[in-house]
Design a protein around this nucleic acid. Structure first.
Length: 183
DNA sequence: CATATGATGGACT
DNA sequence: GTCCATCATATGG
């Protein structure tokens, strides 16, 4: 039986967590069924030194949650889409990982993008601030079959001003990875 | 196949 | 009013 990831997994630097989340299985309980999907694309966000991070823009709803305990769920919206993030790092240090794309394992939906996957899994503001395995509604399971994972990294997508380091991680040649890419 | 553009709504100043 | 870590559609090769 695969086990749910615990806080220790998330209380490491955001880039480490983002890289290791690839291939893990995101689970969502919905209408009595459990939807399972492989995580295929993530991005790491840091604190005040990261111009793309909302934590660099002073105190607000997002930066506050990024300082919370690792493993908590952070939801915010861009236009009408919800973004799913997990808080990472040590408490007090703002950092988080954005889930950008997933590959459905036992259901069919369009999930090749951060706004699409939250809509497919019916994830909304009610998850904001919850710990990832509380309520058994949304959690991440470890995955044993990681031998064939080909991890690539690139600069982040859609950000106005990126850091000098690539902080986007994705599985090579996976067709559920979102398309639009710059640099 | 590629790149460009407009719609969209919540949070913040 | 401005910003934004998006998406769907339209257009051109």
């Amino acid at each position: 039986m695969p086990k749910s990831l615990n806080s220790n997994f998330f209380s490491r630097p955001a880039d480490v967590v983002a890289a290791e989340l690839l291939g893990k299985v995101l689970c969502r309980k919905l209408d009595g069924k459990i939807l399972r999907a492989r995580i295929v694309e993530t991005e790491a966000y840091f604190g005040e030194d990261d111009p793309a991070s909302r934590a660099s823009k002073g105190e607000n709803k997002v930066s506050k949650m990024m300082r919370e305990k690792a493993g908590k769920i952070l939801i915010y919206n861009v236009h009408r889409f919800k973004m799913l993030n997990f808080v990472t790092g040590s408490e007090g240090e703002p950092s988080a990982v954005l889930i950008r794309a997933i590959e459905p394992l036992n259901f069919k939906a369009r999930t090749a993008g951060p706004g699409l996957l939250t809509s497919a899994l019916k994830i909304d503001d009610s998850f904001h601030g919850k710990h990832q395995h509380i309520d058994n509604l949304l959690w991440v399971e470890d995955e044993e079959n990681k031998e064939n994972l080909k991890v690539e990294r690139s600069f982040r997508i859609g950000v106005r001003e990126d850091l000098n380091i690539p902080l986007r991680f994705y599985i090579k040649e996976n067709k559920f990875v979102s398309k639009i890419s710059k640099k």
